[in-house]
Every structure is written in structure tokens, then in C-alpha cells.
Amino acid sequence: MPRPRSYRCEAVVLRRHDFGEADRILVLFSRERGKLRAIAKGSRRTTSRLAGHLELFTHAELQVANGRDLDVITQAEARNPFRALREDLTRTSHAYLVAELADVLTEDQAEQPEMFDLLLQTFSALEVALDPRLVVDHYSLALLGIVGFRPSLAVCLLCREELRPGLNAFSAMLGGALCPRCGPGEASARPIASDVLKVLRHLQRSGPPGTVRLRLAEPVAREVDRVLRDLAERHTERRLRSPDLIARLRSEAGESHPSAPQTPALPVEEGARE
């Protein structure tokens, strides 16, 4: 049967780069075909009918023609431009990390409706979240789970014994936590604080993005970030780029408000009792 000449799909723009005179190549994550690449011809011209509908992070309805090498986007209509993600630098930088994770942790051309919905929910949650960091942490843990890298957080990876609060360790290479007896023997493991493990477990059990209500002390939040970043980098064998921008913006914001009150050392406010 001949292949149809074009198809419709619903997609989010993860990444794009300029190509030729006025074209752009886009990396999209679609409901119907997972991650895919396509070219948007002429989309750098100010009069392009596509351009505004194909900005980064936009959720759009597309008509795409099958091309020889690259598929060609012939029509685009934005469904949700996630405007709040563009108008606040902190939210923008976290959205970059979400897009980067979606890009590096997924494969081309595989139908993944679950991942697509998770991505949309995460962007929606990021638009309103008080703490965008938690939304991204939740997203990376959920995505790692879907792609088959769900870290083991409740029992020791080696002896399968249930983990209790104490001197536990965590190995991004092995993909989970280790008990105080197995931890010291494993070269790739680093100590992990009980609070951090508790937060990770809570995030792993939580429902859709945006439903997590936690207030984390800065050191705990930073450590949760680091563990999740290690996991993602270990599995993709590449360095994530967006965390640098997030860290930079955070440190500059901190410098300009030196008298800002410290978040109280309150690791878990509600719902995370073991």
C-alpha cells in the first residue's frame, strides 16, 4: 500500500535550529509518532504563516508532508503557546530543562501518548507553579520511569532489604539506593540524606504534575536536583545543558536580594509520612 503523502499530528516543539536561508528544522514531540524531526520552510521570515505557531514549547496541531529526508510542515496552528513560560525567565529556564529531558530521554518515531500527556501537563503546571523546580523534578522522575529507568528508592538495590532512615547511599550508575551495609562496598555510590530519599519517594508516588505540594529546604532541594540530574545524565551518557542556566539565574537572583529570608528547614510539609 502506498504511504500517504501527508499526516496530521499534535506536537510540542522541543528544539529547533536555523537551516538554509529562512528555514528551521524542528525537533517535535508528538502524540501520534513520538519524537520526530521536520522542516518548517520560510519560518524565519516575519511574514511566515507558520512561525508564530512553531515557537519553542508551543503545543500545536500540524499538517506534515512526508519528505524524502525530512518531513515538511505545511500547516500549523497553535493550541497552547504556554505564554506564561515565555514571560518569566525562571519558568523559561525550567521549561528548557523539561524540553531537553524529553529530547534526550526518548527515541525517535515511537507512539508515546502517555509521555505526550505528561509533557503537556508538566508545561501547564510550570506556568503556575510556585516552585518550578519541583515540577521539573517530578517530570524527570516520571519520565525516567516511563522509559524504563525507574530508580529503586524503597529497597536496597543489592540485598533487596527495605531502606530505613539512616546512612543510606545512592548510585546513579546502578539506578537506585543502597542500604548502610551494601553502600560502602559500592564505588559508584554516594551518601544520600534520609530527607532527600523521602522527597524522591514522595515524588515517585505522586499523581499528575502540579499536584505535588512540598516545601523543601534549599539544601534538600539542591540534592534532589543533583540526584535526578545524575540519573538522567548517566542513562543518556551526555551532559544536560539547561541546568547551568537555571543555576546561574538562581545565583544572580540570590545575589541581588542578599537579605531574602531563608526557607525554613522544613523538608516535607504534608503527605510524605512514611
Binding site: H17, Y96, D103, R241, S242, D244, L245, R248
Partner: peptide, 9 residues
């Protein structure tokens, strides 16, 4: 600034 292409502040 374009973190996905490695352009930082």
C-alpha cells in the same frame, strides 16, 4: 541565550 545549543549568559 540558548541553553539547548550551549549558549549561556
Amino acid at each position: 541565550i540558548d541553553p539547548l545549543h550551549g549558549v549561556g549568559v
